[in-house]
Each structure stands twice: as C-alpha cells, then as structure tokens.
Nucleic acid binder design. Sequence first.
DNA 1: GCCAACGTTGGC
DNA 2: GCCAACGTTGGC
Length: 138
Amino acid sequence: MSAFWLFKSEPDAWSWDQMVACGAAGTGWTGVRNHLAKKQMQAMQAGDLGFFYHSNVGKAVVGVVEVIKTFHPDPTDESGKFGMVDVRAVEPLPRPVTLEEIKADARFADMALVTNMRLSVQPVSAEHWNAIRALGGL
DNA sequence: GCCAACGTTGGC
DNA sequence: GCCAACGTTGGC
C-alpha cells in the first residue's frame, strides 16, 4: 500500500510553477538537511503521492506530486549525509487549501503540519490526505 | 522584521 | 554524554 506525504517549499526558492515546468521527468527534491525529514524520504516508494505546500508565502497546499525515484544521493549535499527523492507534478489543487483552514479544522489537529510545523517533509495519513484533497476540490 | 520553536554544534 | 549557545525555519 502506498503512503502519502507532504513536501514543503518556500515558493521564492522552489515554487509549484517550477515543479510543473519540470514535467513528467520531475526533479530531485534537493536541499533537505534534517534527519527526520531524511527518514521520511527513505521510507518513500516510487508511486507514492504527496502534497506540495508553499511555506512562508501563500502558506497553502497547492498541488499533488508523485515520487518517481526512491532515496538517492543529493548532489547539492557536500557532506554526503543526506539525500533526496525525485518527484514530479501530478495536478494542481483547483482551490489551494491554506494553513489557516487546516489549523481551524479539528480533523487536522494531530497533523504534523500543525503539531510540528518545522518539519519540511512529513507523512500524511490517508484520512488527512482524502480530507485535504476534498477541500482542495479534487 | 521579529521571535518562538527546534535542531545542531561544540565545550567541558 | 550533557547542555548552553547558536543558527535556521517559518508563522505572524
């Protein structure tokens, strides 16, 4: 059974539009320098789906991505300690789901986005996945 | 731009 | 191996 994830990115650094521009070939999710986030990526399988979340500017889930390559070295990591997965854009949410909405909804009280907001790559339960998709109009 | 939360580093 | 200092993230 495949799992669900959430990838955070500051749109100034890497935006959904840039993700879409990479097309089916996707791109490496570089730059993760956190061991807990690394652990999440090591658990990912090709075909797993994730939300693309814009932090800081927008603060909303804006799209769906698919993991297309499992954990492998991150060329931007000089220490060699971390790594990345490759992801591609699948589809945008017709209506972005904002952090404000997620925080206001009791269903998401135990979601990592709320309880551990600083984790940049996090797992999402099937319940949360379906609820946010529905809020986003998918 | 500020600051709280949290992770990491480095001295002991 | 502990813990204080420091750096970074990210909401506000």
